[in-house]
């Protein structure tokens, strides 16, 4: 137990200390939020789909969590290269504890990042529908965060250097984001897009978050919770397994 805590704390310290990274990771979501939110707002409204900023905010929160969480997981590669991973892998704690501590730490950081985006969106005019649903929103944020930190950890466990990194961003993270319903409603999306989105775990995160924050859901909040929760557990399992197999 204490090992999980020390690894969790380490992730938080590293996050807190690198202000540049913290701000850098906010830049993109905030740009998306403001440029798209205000840019597409009038079109969206004209189409009778309501307020775009309201619709977009949960998607952008999910986006910032997606990116921060995946990067946190991928930090394992850095620790491999800078050598610190060795120090942790010879310690008398199980690799499962190490993986869980790191993942929960990375997920906490990503969730904080999501909350900051929520605050910025609120300042820009976003209104939370029902404050009593806020805890549910945090649950969805944290689940998304754990899922993608675990995914990042799994990838980092099998990669030896940052070479594959750009590949992962372009062919995994970006598609996951664009095909999640973060930017457009899935109920009007044409067939193939809808099918792809329904295979994307992030879609359920975005949908659940949207339900919790603005009271609108396309897939059903219980489905969201069940599928996101299950997929998160599966990824935690895969991540722990691959992490435990690391050799140096």
């Amino acid at each position: 137990m204490s090992a999980i805590y020390v690894f969790w704390l380490r992730q938080l310290k590293r996050y807190y200390r690198s202000k540049a990274r913290m701000i850098g990771a906010l830049g993109q979501p905030v740009l998306f939020l403001l440029a798209l939110g205000f840019g597409f707002g009038p079109v969206f409204e004209k189409a009778g789909a309501g307020n775009y900023l309201e619709f977009l905010t949960p998607g952008i929160i999910a986006m910032s969590i997606l990116f921060t969480a995946t990067f946190s997981g991928i930090e394992v590669i850095w620790d491999k290269q800078f050598g610190f991973l060795k120090e942790t892998l010879v310690a008398p704690v199980s690799r499962l504890e190490i993986m869980l501590g790191r993942t929960l730490g990375g997920a906490t950081v990503a969730s904080i990042q999501g909350i900051i985006v929520l605050i910025i969106a609120s300042l820009a005019g976003f209104t939370i529908q029902n404050w009593s649903m806020l805890p549910l929103a945090f649950v969805f944020m944290f689940l998304i965060a754990v899922l993608f930190t675990a995914l990042g950890t799994a990838l980092a466990s099998v990669l030896d250097d940052m070479q594959g990194f750009q590949l992962i961003i372009n062919f995994l993270i970006m598609p996951l984001f664009f095909l999640s319903g973060a930017l457009f409603p899935l109920d009007t999306a044409p067939g193939i897009l809808g099918t792809l989105a329904s295979l994307n775990p992030l879609s359920y995160g975005v949908d659940g978050l949207r339900y919790a924050l603005i009271g609108v859901s396309h897939l059903g909040v219980f489905t969201d919770l069940a599928i996101l929760g299950t997929v998160t557990l599966i990824f935690l399992g895969i991540g722990s397994y691959l992490f435990s197999k690391i050799q140096i």
């Binding site: 020390v6 590293r14 050598g83 610190f84």
Partner: peptide, 26 residues
């Protein structure tokens, strides 16, 4: 073990590196 190659966490202080190790080794 003391490794031949570096294995410290550069983003932590000297004390934190020690303390982290102490916690891991109970």
């Amino acid at each position: 073990i003391v490794f031949q190659d570096p294995s410290l966490d550069d983003e932590l202080t000297a004390y934190e590196n020690m303390d982290f190790h102490g916690a891991l080794y109970h």
